[in-house]
């Protein structure tokens, strides 16, 4: 897949990680000073120790749902309620807050989740793919 179609190519890639090769990976970072793993990648400085030796790290698109909520009211442009938000603890450490695709049903905390790309539009209305978390397919 061409990453040029992604809505936020600085945050994720279509290609998976070694741990989850079939799932889009998240583009995080790691602090060489203290080992703190974070998302997304940034170069300002480590939030935990202040170190500036920060390196990109591809994070696996798999994790565990911590919480979810159906949102019924949203004022921002380009997104219509209702939709479902969730907090997912990635297997690689960071916690991300993300859109959940689960057919309108609110999933329960503890559920295994994985990344997927879903159709979206950019600010100009052009077709793009954006990241969602969905229930992890059972092996």
């Amino acid at each position: 897949m061409d990453d040029g179609t992604l809505l936020k190519p600085a945050l994720y890639q279509a290609e998976g990680s070694a741990a989850a090769p079939d799932r889009p990976a998240l583009l995080g970072g790691v602090c060489a000073t203290c080992g703190y793993v974070f998302f997304p990648m940034q170069r300002y400085g480590c939030e935990r120790c202040g170190g500036i030796d920060l390196h990109p790290r591809t994070l696996s698109g798999a994790g565990t749902l911590l919480a979810a909520a159906r949102v019924h009211l949203h004022a921002g442009k380009g997104r219509e309620a209702p939709f479902t938000m969730g907090a997912v603890a990635l297997d690689d450490g960071p916690i991300v807050r993300t859109l959940i695709d689960n057919g309108g049903e609110v999933p329960q905390p503890g559920l295994r989740m994985a990344t997927a790309l879903a159709p979206a539009v950019d600010a100009e209305g052009g077709p793009r793919l954006d990241l969602r978390f969905v229930r992890e397919a059972r092996p």
Binding site: P40, A67, A69, R79, F83, M85, R97, T98, L99, L131
Partner: peptide
């Protein structure tokens, strides 16, 4: 960047905590 912070009004942040 963020995955979807534009979709997280304060009430949604706390709705997640409530869940």
């Amino acid at each position: 960047g963020s995955l979807a912070d534009d979709a997280i009004a304060p009430f949604t942040h706390f709705a997640l905590l409530a869940d």
